[in-house]
Amino acid sequence: MDHKRRKREIEQLEKKVEDLRRLASPQIPEAELERVRAEINFLKRDFHAHLDAWQRTQLARHPQRPSTLDYIRLLFADFTEIHGDRAFADDPAMVTGMARFHGRPVAVIGQQKGRDTKQKLARNFGMSKPEGYRKALRVMKIAGKFGRPIFTFVDTPGAYPGIDAEERGQAEAIARNLREMARLPVPIIVTITGEGGSGGALAIAVGDTVNMLENSIYSVISPEGCASIIWRDASKAEQAAAALKISAPDLLELGLIDEIVPEPDGGAHLNHEATAQLLDPVLERWLKELVRLPTPELLDRRYEKYRRMGQFMEQAAIP
């Protein structure tokens, strides 16, 4: 693949510069070295800016990508987890709680996929069941009651498609969250950190601002699912990923998200701290802006934000 080759080339260049510096530092002027380094950085940035949708999908699913619990650890203080939906169970695929963000008490909600096999099984691969969405809503209502802004971190392949989930009303749980989030009287700041998998993602992603990490995706159906419907062949996922326009730049252009949060060179999985440091100012800026708004204005703004989504022709002739 062309991308892999280019990546190797960049890495080789980097190594060469380092070798040169060590071997012949007195002879090479520092300015020249700097120039070469800047050139490499430019190449790197160019490389990452031109990842295609499928490559971004793979980065978005990378097991070492920072998870909700990582962001909680790196960005929030005094996190207190809240468990259970008060009706059926506690869903480990959904993490919810209260915490402080730059000293301000807030609510935090996010999906948790798990990193190794054991964790993944325990977290059900980040696929929530109805009790997860109901727990999230319960915490959001608490936040609404006490005037606490809400941060959500979205990273899920989708809502769990299983017998038990259907029996307990997966669709109803998601639908209710969508309706209630639309009228929650506190700021909701959404960050798509990895996979934004359809309704299961949207159920905690209706907010005043929706930010996406550079290499995250947000889609109505997984590329594999799309490919198996269209071509009856899940291996055409690469093609489907491109057709569905699921990458952050595409979605920004379509006006469906508000901001793209840059990731450290090579992707978020390489450096969790740096990723959090890049996300922190974005969250803080949005929070400052949103808490200033009076509640009715905040709600109108949120309504209008979604009201505008979707294009159509108003007066077309129908054949």
Binding site: A175, S198, G199, L202, I229, L244, R307, M309, G310
Partner: peptide, 16 residues
């Protein structure tokens, strides 16, 4: 599916 994430956002729009 053919309108991708735009279709997904209709869920939020209608529910709001």
């Amino acid at each position: 599916m053919m309108e991708g994430t735009i279709s997904l956002m209709q869920l939020a729009k209608v529910s709001a």
